[in-house]
């Protein structure tokens, strides 16, 4: 990846599947449509995950910044970085090591 700064990185993520984690422990999985400087985020094909289980599905969602967002790229071939981050919040299907 050739991202030089965070904006490059988030620009690079647009159109890709991401996981947005809120401080509350709820995760949103979807396609990143766009985001702004407040970290307001628009997702498509959104799944809401609580404790790793899908609780809701929305076509489009606006997630307000300032809810403690962390965005992660969700890759087809999940690399070690992703695995480690994901496992740290996962309670069900992924091994925790």
């Amino acid at each position: 990846m050739e991202s030089q700064n965070t904006q490059d990185f988030t620009g690079f993520l647009i159109g890709r599947p991401v996981i947005v984690k809120l401080n509350s422990g709820v995760d949103y999985r979807g396609i990143l449509a766009c985001l702004d400087g407040y970290m307001n985020i628009a997702l498509e094909q959104t799944e809401e995950l609580v404790n790793g289980q899908v609780k809701n599905q929305y076509g489009d969602t606006f997630i307000r910044g300032n809810n403690g967002n962390q965005t992660q790229q969700q890759r087809e071939r999940r690399d070690a970085f992703y695995h480690r981050l994901y496992a740290s919040h996962s309670h069900n299907n992924r091994q925790n090591h």
């Binding site: 159109g15 449509a33 766009c34 702004d36 628009a42 498509e44 489009d60 969602t61 606006f62 997630i63």
Partner: peptide, 13 residues
């Protein structure tokens, strides 16, 4: 933008 010309920033949604 994925959702056509209408959406450039999240608040457009």
């Amino acid at each position: 933008p994925l959702e056509g010309p209408g959406i450039e920033e999240p608040l457009d949604l």
